[in-house]
C-alpha cells in the first residue's frame, strides 16, 4: 500500500473497520517489547490493585519515611503547607466553606496514593523510594486520616481492599447534565 493510501485510511476514520488490512500494510516499525522491558516501566496501578509490587509496610514504619522525605513540603502529620494538605477535611466537600480536599476527605482509591507516591514523590527525587517505603508511607497517611489502624499492614492484597471515605463521591460527567 502506498503512503498516500495509508494516509487516506488513517484520515478517514475507518482504521478500526479495516484493522486487518491496515495492520498488514502499515509501516510496522515498532519492535516487540519484552516482558522485562514492560515490567521496568509499567508502574501504573489501577483501582483493582493489579500490578502492585511485592513488599509491605505499616503506619509506624511510614512515620519515619514521612519525617525524612515528606514533612518539608506537606507539614507535620500531613497538615499541609507549603504544599498540599494530606490529612483531614472530611465532611467539608459540601456546605458553604471551601472544601478541604485531602487523601482522607477526597481521594476515592488507596491504590492511587501508592501509584502517585511511587511515580512522583518525593518531588525532588521521584521514583527513589523502595516499595516497602511506599507501602509504609501510604499506610501512615491512611492511618493519620483514620482510615486504617496503627497495626494494619499494607501490601498488594490489603491496599486495594481499603475503602476510602469518598469512594462513592464521583459521578461520570455527561454533557448537559
Amino acid at each position: 500500500m502506498s503512503m498516500r493510501n495509508a494516509l487516506l485510511i488513517a484520515a478517514s476514520g475507518l482504521a478500526v473497520a479495516s484493522a486487518v488490512t491496515f495492520a498488514a500494510e502499515s509501516p510496522n516499525l515498532g519492535r516487540a517489547a519484552t516482558p522485562e522491558e514492560i515490567a521496568s516501566w509499567d508502574i501504573s496501578i489501577g483501582p483493582d490493585g493489579v500490578g502492585l509490587p511485592p513488599g509491605s509496610g505499616t503506619s509506624k514504619q511510614g512515620e519515619a519515611v514521612y519525617a525524612a522525605k515528606c514533612t518539608a513540603c506537606h507539614g507535620e502529620k500531613g497538615a499541609g503547607k507549603p504544599n498540599d494538605q494530606l490529612v483531614g477535611g472530611q465532611g467539608t466537600l459540601s456546605g458553604d466553606k471551601p472544601p478541604v480536599k485531602t487523601v482522607g476527605s477526597f481521594w476515592p482509591y488507596a491504590t492511587t496514593v501508592f501509584d502517585y507516591v511511587r511515580r512522583a514523590m518525593p518531588h525532588n527525587e521521584s521514583k527513589s523510594l523502595t516499595n516497602d517505603e511506599v507501602y509504609a508511607v501510604v499506610a501512615y497517611i491512611l492511618n493519620l486520616n483514620g482510615i486504617i489502624a496503627d497495626v494494619d499492614m499494607m501490601d498488594a492484597r490489603t491496599l486495594p481492599a481499603v475503602k476510602m471515605p469518598n469512594r462513592d463521591g464521583f459521578v461520570a460527567f455527561s454533557r448537559g447534565k
Partner: peptide
C-alpha cells in the same frame, strides 16, 4: 480523581 474533577454544591464531583 483528586484533581481535574468538578466538585458540585452537594459535595459530589463530576469526573
Amino acid at each position: 480523581t483528586s484533581k481535574y474533577t468538578i466538585t458540585l454544591p452537594d459535595g459530589k464531583s463530576l469526573q
